[in-house]
């Protein structure tokens, strides 16, 4: 399948020896008491109370226009972190990511403001993504209908803290999906919401794929990877364990997880 694009292999995303390190405050082992904290400060100077999590370790790959790439790996293997780094949302510790234009990350956990109404969140989310007021006004009803928030009454005018977790996730996805994207990354979005919403979002993702140059899809569902992707990156403990055609990689991955 990759051969189809052999003629015009234009790279859209290049990752070059990418390392991502999270710094977590207050996660150092040991007692959390004040004296323990004080002695840590005295002893360590620079590293007081900070623990580093090396989430992505030296990943390199090149993604081309027209490719749909699946990202697999067990929980905590660094898939979401890698996507965030490609989107430029997480700074790299070492190495670089080069991208064509501005990649967009479609996640279910795009944070919104819980103390504001759903309506305000739609508007603010759109403005933050760089949409104009007119574009938001045009798409507003579409976003609300797509999210299905108002199916059980007028919930869009209530603060988001009153939403169930499923409702909030649906609204977040709907806002993020409202914009057209160049390089598109989808983080387990297919798992969001009830069956009806899943169907709607799958259709929207297919639409977005046709407009986007390159699509990344993170999923634990091997079937949806097989359906949508021709190439798969397999991450394990932050390292790229395998990169190749979907069938080959998934075969190895299934062998690995069956153990």
């Amino acid at each position: 399948m990759a051969e189809q694009h052999q003629e015009a292999r234009v790279p859209t995303v290049i990752a070059d020896e990418l390392h991502i390190v999270y710094k977590v405050n207050g996660a150092r082992k040991g007692k959390g008491s004040a004296t323990a904290a004080l002695s840590r400060i005295m002893r360590r100077g620079e590293e007081r109370g900070v623990r580093e999590v090396h989430a992505v370790r030296g990943v390199s790959f090149v993604a081309y226009k027209g490719e749909a790439i699946g990202l697999i790996g067990s929980n905590g293997s660094g898939k979401s972190t890698l996507l965030r780094a490609i989107a430029g949302l997480l700074p790299a510790e070492r190495g670089k990511v080069y991208t064509n234009g501005q990649p967009s990350l479609l996640g279910v956990n795009a944070a919104l403001m819980n103390d504001l109404t759903g309506e305000r969140n739609v508007i603010l989310g759109g403005l933050a993504m760089g949409m104009s007021r007119e574009q938001i006004r045009e798409r507003y009803q579409e976003i609300v209908d797509f999210s299905g928030i108002n199916e059980k009454g007028d919930f869009i005018s209530l603060p988001m803290r009153t939403y169930s977790s499923g409702m909030a996730a649906r609204l977040r996805f709907s806002i993020a999906a409202a914009k057209d994207h160049d390089v598109l990354m989808i983080d387990e979005a297919l798992a969001t919401g009830d069956r009806k919403f899943q169907k709607r979002s799958e259709a929207r993702i297919r639409e977005l794929r046709q407009q986007a140059g390159t699509v990344f899809l993170v999923s634990h569902n091997n079937k949806s990877i097989r359906d949508t992707c021709e190439r798969v990156l397999w991450l394990e403990r932050g390292e790229l364990r395998m990169d190749g055609p979907t069938d080959e990689v998934l075969k190895e991955y299934e062998k690995f997880t069956a153990k």
Partner: peptide
């Protein structure tokens, strides 16, 4: 680095 020098057993 070109795309043919991936880590792992399979090159694309």
């Amino acid at each position: 680095m070109s795309e043919s020098t991936h880590d792992g057993p399979v090159a694309v």
